[in-house]
Each structure stands twice: as structure tokens, then as C-alpha cells.
Write a protein that binds this DNA or RNA. Sequence first.
DNA 1: TTAGTTATGCGCGAAATGGATATAAGTCAA
DNA 2: TTGACTTATATCCATTTCGCGCATAACTAA
Lengths: 239, 239
Amino acid sequence: MTEAEFLARYDPADYPRPALAVDLVLLGLRGGRPVVLLGPRAQHPHAGRWALPGGFVGIAEDLEAAAGRVLREKAGAAQAYLEQLFTFGALTRDPRMRIVSVAYLGLLTEAALAEALAQAPSLRAAALTLPAAPDGPAEAATERGEGLPLAFDHGEILGVALRRLRGKLDYSEVGFALLPPLFTLRQLQDVHEAILGTALNKPAFRRRMLDRGWLAPTGRHEAGTSYRPAELFRFQKTP
Amino acid sequence: MTEAEFLARYDPADYPRPALAVDLVLLGLRGGRPVVLLGPRAQHPHAGRWALPGGFVGIAEDLEAAAGRVLREKAGAAQAYLEQLFTFGALTRDPRMRIVSVAYLGLLTEAALAEALAQAPSLRAAALTLPAAPDGPAEAATERGEGLPLAFDHGEILGVALRRLRGKLDYSEVGFALLPPLFTLRQLQDVHEAILGTALNKPAFRRRMLDRGWLAPTGRHEAGTSYRPAELFRFQKTP
DNA sequence: TTAGTTATGCGCGAAATGGATATAAGTCAA
DNA sequence: TTGACTTATATCCATTTCGCGCATAACTAA
């Protein structure tokens, strides 16, 4: 049999295929720190560890559709900003069988985070921290700082997610996905500082954001403060 | 049957799975313009169109290993810088069956490009251009400017690839993957200008690159020029 | 020796940035 | 009503970065 004949008869349907899944890194902010939604693993493997919400991709299901379905069914969040992050395919990432997982990054506003936690009681919002190393896994912890062991390669996935978000924050519009429709400049700066983990210079931050053309002034101001109320802005896409 | 019982018995191995493939965007430079390696499709579907080198992922094969295997077997290139690009999973991207493809970006030096073309005679290096739209597909053409029709969603993949490369070029080290081990600052600038499609200011480019700490002077100079020979540099990773 | 060509280095003005400070606008308590 | 207090907003200035022109260096060719 020549190579051409072999190739003509080659049918990948005859060969075993890896299973294909999606995993969701659902990030929000709480108390000025990034948190991620994790669920407990009750059974083997990695019983007792904490895992990202995920699910298998249907044979007639788009990748984005699968991510949206997992978001609805397993995280109880009706809507969130979702973007594809990276595809993880190491041979040993799941001891049961070969599973290749397309990871998605999802950003939740404070309201969406609260709704997700209410709809999916088994999930918890774990504090997310990143070691100083240029790459490597992120770490999850409770509010009190007790480390939460992560299942599978989900620490690696979280590391990629938080670094991607940090890298895109300044030049892209992702930061607004963590804010309500109306927000103040201080709230926007709080979001950036929480994600980056560093303090930012206020006048410089204001200038940069206003020059980007992303902020539409509303003329309205926040209410209920005991000090001078800040103006409320709305996000508008760059034309 | 309760949901818990259903989930306990649920075995994704029982359900049909999408096929999983890798596709390689192998970019190089020729005549100061980006080119991509494409192969002709002889059979249905998309017969007569041009496609990226690709292959199915083995059940016991890493994603990176699959990309490396395709690079060796179908593109004849022994080594190239490879990085994961994006995963394409639209339902209709292949009319035969559901195929999810993990696209990889590969960068070839001029020598590697020539070697690949010699080893894999069916491939051709097609000129790659990007319409002005912020997203959408890229276009391939012959040296004379005649358009080459692309198979499947490979135009979309090429669009993502070239935009990713443009975005990373300035702040990352990918540019050096298109150069031989020893190179001049002018060659480095030529690479950047070819990828970005714009002219760059020479003194500013020199300053920025030298300040990055990526360039190790060798003291040696290029030979065979009919003008002042430029110093040869070597790429060194940032410490 | 001279013209031609490119590499390399220098200097200047524009623009962006960090940081401090002044002023504005609200609440709250006396 | 007034003044202390807090935060928003605007202004100003020193520093850095960047774009850009130009002078000088180094080599070949005639």
C-alpha cells in the first residue's frame, strides 16, 4: 500500500479520539481582591480538591455554546463576558482518560457573582493569588487565607487566566466587564488595582482612561456618599 | 433516576466526540513580506483550494507533540518556534464531520523556510495580507498578486495568527524567531517592519531594542557589504 | 583620494507619565 | 449657620519616553 492509498483510506473516525471539554475560569472581585468560582470534587479523582466548572463538548455543540451552557447550568450565571483562553491537552491531566480542555475566561460583575453563588450553592468564591514567578500555577485560598487544593491542572489554568487578564487590562476593554453599567472613575481604578495587585497613580489613570475614548459621561452622580459624589460614566465602544 | 444517579452513570466515552486536529500557521518572510506555507487540496472538500498543514491528534499524543509531528512530517521543517494560537470549533468548519482544531503559530527563519519548501515540494509560500478591518479573514496570494482561495476556515485562522504576531511583536521575543542566530539591528528592524507592514523610525527602534536587554553584542560585524558593516548581535533571554 | 552608502551616535522638541498640590462639592456635627 | 472632614476634579511641574533630523564613522568602489 502506497502512502497515497493509505491516506485515501485513512479515516480518523476509526481511531480513538480524546474527549473534549470546556473549563470556565469565572473571575470576579470581592473586597478589592480577585476571586474565582470553584466547586468541590466529591469523587475520585482528586476528591476533596476544588475544580473549575466544566463540561464535555457535545458533538453538535459550538465551543462557545458549550461554555455558555456550563455557565448557565453549573455556575447559575445568566450572562458574563466570555473569551477563549487556552487549550490544555497534557496526556496526564486527567487520570481517568485523555481529556483535552478548552479553557474560557469569564468575568463577573459583583451582581453576577452574587447571583451565581446563590444559584449554585456548591460553588465558592476563592481568593486568587499569583506567585512572583513569571509562569506557573496560581493559588486559591479561603477568605481567611487557608489554601484550597486545586484539582487536575486547574492551578495552571488559573495562572494563565490571571496573567492574560493582567496583560489585556490596560489596552483592552475587558476591565468594564467587571463593572455595572454605570460606574465612577474610582470604581474603574479599583478594578484595575485589584487585578494588577498594585496601586495606580490617580491623575495619570484618569487621564489615560478619558483619553482612550471609552468613557461616556452621563452627567449623573453617585448618591448616598458622605462626601463629594463622583460623576457616573458609561462604557462606550471605541468608534 | 435522579440527577445525581444520572451524573454518576454518565460516561462521556459513551457519547460521540468531535475529532481533534492541529493546524499549523507557518510564517516566514520573503522579500520583506510575510508568507505562509500552504498545501493544495486535491480532493473533496474544498478541492483546488489551499490549506494549512494539519493532522489529527493521537489518543496518546500531546498537543505540542502533534504540532511538532505535523511540522516534521508535512512541512519538512526540523525546528521552528511554535506557540498555541487559538482553538477553532465552529460546527460547519469541515463539511465531512465535526472537527475541532487547535491552531499553532510557527515562525520560520529564512533558512528554515527554504528547507521546508525543499523537503515538502507540494507546499508553497503564499504572500499573506490582512484587510484593514479590525477582524476578519486574511488573504493569501501568489508572488504576482493572484489570490489563492483558502480551504475551510483557514482564512480566519490566518487572520488571528497575523494579528496575534503583530500584537506580540513589540513587547515579546517572538521577532527573534524569524532571524538567524547572528543578526544586525537593521535585519531586526526589517523583520518588524515586514510583520507590521509599516515603516519604523530607526533611532527610536535601536534605542528601544537595546534598552530591552535582549541584544548581546558580539563585537563581530557582517561581511561582504559594499558599505559600513553593521555589528552582529545575538539574542539573549532577559534575566 | 573622493564619492557613495549605510551604521552609529547625538540632540532637540513633543508627548506621555508620575506625583504633588490646589480647588470643588458634598456630609456631618456643633 | 458654620466649619471640619472626605473625596472628586483640575492644574502644574519634573522626569521619562518617543519621534525625528542631523552629524559623524566606517566601509567599498572608482
